[in-house]
Structures are given as C-alpha cells and as structure tokens.
Nucleic acid binder design. Structure first.
Lengths: 143, 143
DNA sequence: AATAGGTTTAGAATGATTCTAATCTAAATC
DNA sequence: GATTTAGATTAGAATCATTCTAAACCTATT
C-alpha cells in the first residue's frame, strides 16, 4: 500500500509554500521545488539536477545541493540514507510515513502509516528521552 | 534503556567466530574484530582505524574498509547511516534492536527491543511484501 | 623451501558534497 | 526609474569518504 503525495504544481502555490517557510523564491528554487515535491522516487541530488536541467538548463550542481539543503533545514524535505547504497536521497513526504526498501532493486517506497503500529513503552524507555521523530524502514522483497 | 552487547574478547573466541562466518583469521582482522565487537559507540571506519592502530600500528585504511565490508557481507556487523551526518557507521549488534539518536550530540544508542512494539498490519501491507528486516530509529533529546 | 591463494599495503582514482570568489538578480532606497 | 545592497547562482577548486590497483606479504600446502 503506497501513500500519496501533495501535488504543489502551479507557480503561485510553489511561491506560497516557499515563502511560508521563509525562503525567497527564485527561478532555480522554483524548478527544483516543482520537481522534488511531485516525485515519489526519492531522487539523489544528481537525479534532481538531470531532471531540473530539462526546464532550466543552466542550473548548477552547487545550487541543487544548496537548495536541497535549504529545503531540508526548513523542513520541506527529508534526507534518506540507505545502508549499502551511496549518497543521499530526498523525500518530499514530510508527513509521518514509513519506507519499504526492495532489496533486489534498491527502490525506496513510501508506505501508508497505517500499515504499521509503533507503540513505545514509555515506562521502559524512561522519562529522560524526548522523542521528536520515529523513522521506520522495512526491508525485503516485493513479489 | 540500553541493551547489552556480546563480549568476544579472547583470541580463541575471535578466531572461532570469524571462521564460523567463513572468514580466515589474520592479525589485522583480529584487531579490527576485537575492537568493533566490543564497542557500542557505532564507530566510523576512521575511528576504527585510529583505535586499531594503537595495538596494530601498520594497519591501513584500505584494510579497515575491506574488513568492515567483509564483516557486513557475512552478517557480523551492520551498517548505519544517519541523515545529517556524513559517512557510514558500524553496529556490532546484529540482533534485532532499535536506535535512539540524540539530536544535540549526534550520539547513536542501542535500545532494547522491548521499548517498542512494532505491529505490521499484513492485510493492509499486502501479501506481495516479504519483510526480511525492520529498522527503527527514534530521534530526539536525552535530558 | 617452493608454490599458490588469499591478504595487506600505499597511494592513485572515484564519487559525493562543500567551499570560494566572482558574477548576477531582485528587493529596498533614493 | 536609477542606485545600492543583500542575497542567490555559478564554475571550478577543494575536501571528504570510499574504492581501486598493483605490488609486496603471509600462510597453508606440496
């Protein structure tokens, strides 16, 4: 069961979302946002550059990294790193959800949060742990 | 609540464990195994090298990487990658357990599996997912 | 002790990411 | 609307993590 993404497509919506996060809009940022917020493929920086170049041919890799880092810092994007495969991937889905990684293809899929119930035992965990985020990755094979 | 590690310390035990995994023993491998299997600090390759150099000064970084990769491949060690911090870390604990990452220090701690109950809803997940591994990371602050 | 197979090594090479310093752009001021 | 200014973008250099290469080294076997 896959979960859905927000589809923020019009320039106006993009600009609003950037400015709501305290980010000033610009052509490269719009192009990058437009792509990363509408893909569920968890792309690498290199993949983002290749895609964005199609509509914005002069974009530089430095700008891609700057922008992705900025988006992560502002909570508009999440970093994902998979043991066994190199580099960082970017997840447009900042709502709580889980990942399934297909061990044969390496593909990362978002799972609906309802497929898994995670129940912390606070008495065991202790009062001195403040949890701000839970990340769950299932690994296996899709058949 | 922290979980405990196996403490495989004598040369004899180390050699047995390596050979049980189909790995032929050697001085650098013993030194590396001795260190990584007795630390709960989730060290990087660089940290392993620094530590191992104390007892085995000629060890090269290439050998550290070769050996850690070999151990991972043979299931004697697990890779851990944290979003926001660079490089790969190595976890000697191959039994099911969870991680807590302190967001202020970046420290990764092992948690006892009992602090969290993870309940997959197989009807929602669907029969076409074969799960071989579940990885859970809690992020937050220790106070 | 000669051989063969795997192991280690230093350093080069690669890949991912960040840094630098110059240039460009857009917002703010006159 | 021209000027200033702060911030954004760029190409390429620099850095960091990791892997590759090819020679030297061990260790088990003949």
């Amino acid at each position: 069961m896959k979960s859905e993404h927000q589809n923020t497509s019009t320039p106006k919506e993009l600009k609003q979302r950037l400015s709501a996060a305290g980010i000033q809009a610009s052509a490269p940022r719009m192009a990058i946002a437009q792509y990363v917020w509408n893909t569920c493929s968890h792309p690498t920086a290199e993949e983002v550059k290749t895609e964005v170049e199609k509509t914005f041919p002069t974009v530089s890799l430095a700008t891609v990294y700057n922008t992705l880092n900025l988006f992560v810092e502002k909570g508009l994007l999440k970093e994902v790193k998979e043991p066994g495969s190199p580099g960082t991937r970017y997840d447009c889905n900042t709502k709580p959800h889980f990942h399934f990684v297909d061990e044969s293809s390496g593909e990362i899929m978002d799972l609906d949060p309802r497929v898994l119930r995670v129940v912390p035992d606070m008495s065991l965990l202790g009062k001195n742990f403040q949890i701000t985020d839970i990340e769950v990755t299932l690994r296996g094979r899709k058949i």
